[in-house]
């Protein structure tokens, strides 16, 4: 039932563009989360996520390593985010951005975690995105990224450690500010 990414890419390139929907379904939460961490604002992130998928659709035929679709997609998302930030810096000052962020902040959003998540190195962030936001099992991630299962669990383990370290660091900083 759940085919790997490569299968859907091949279907798309084989004249069934509607199969791209499955890839959108699979990664929309992860890409939106990634872009929220980069752009700090959910509305802009959704817009950027749509743009990411549109670019991916038209670039699909040029994707050489089909097994690394998710990393490739994150790469596109990263570029879209950079462009958006560049454009925004000219238009919007950072205070306004911060204000917008806090306005969008809802109870239960766990801002600390999202902040730490935004600071993770890309490879760690990717594994967390795939495991939790794209709800893939370690085996599925290994299959999609064409990576040994052991590498996946090791990376995940390091990502947890790094995330904990960043959370600790933030906690200390916050308590210093309060004092």
């Amino acid at each position: 039932m759940a085919e790997n990414d490569q299968y859907y890419i091949e279907q798309c390139l084989d004249g069934r563009p509607d199969e791209f929907r499955e890839l959108v379904r699979r990664y929309q939460t992860a890409i939106t989360a990634y872009l929220t961490s980069k752009l700090g604002n959910k509305t802009n992130a959704e817009e950027a996520a749509q743009e990411t998928f549109v670019r991916a659709y038209f670039g699909l035929k040029d994707l050489k390593k089909r097994e690394s679709f998710s990393s490739w997609l994150l790469g596109i998302a990263g570029r879209v985010a950079k462009e958006q930030l560049r454009n925004k810096n000219q238009l919007m000052d950072m205070d306004l951005l911060a204000e917008q962020q806090s306005r969008e902040q809802k109870a239960g959003d766990d801002f600390e975690l999202q902040r730490a998540f935004a600071q993770l190195p890309d490879s760690y962030r990717e594994i967390i995105l795939l495991r939790f936001y794209a709800s893939q099992s370690c085996q599925q991630i290994a299959g999609n990224l064409n990576m040994p299962l052991g590498t996946v669990t090791k990376t995940l383990s390091r990502a947890y450690t790094e995330l904990r370290r960043l959370l600790e660091k933030q906690k200390m900083k916050d308590s210093e500010v309060q004092r």
Binding site: V24, R25, R26, Q28, T29, D110, I128, L163
Partner: peptide
């Protein structure tokens, strides 16, 4: 658990 609780959001047909 903490990551799970922030990551759980339904994929949306409108987004698609």
């Amino acid at each position: 658990q903490r990551i799970k609780s922030v990551s759980q959001s339904e994929s949306s047909l409108d987004f698609e």
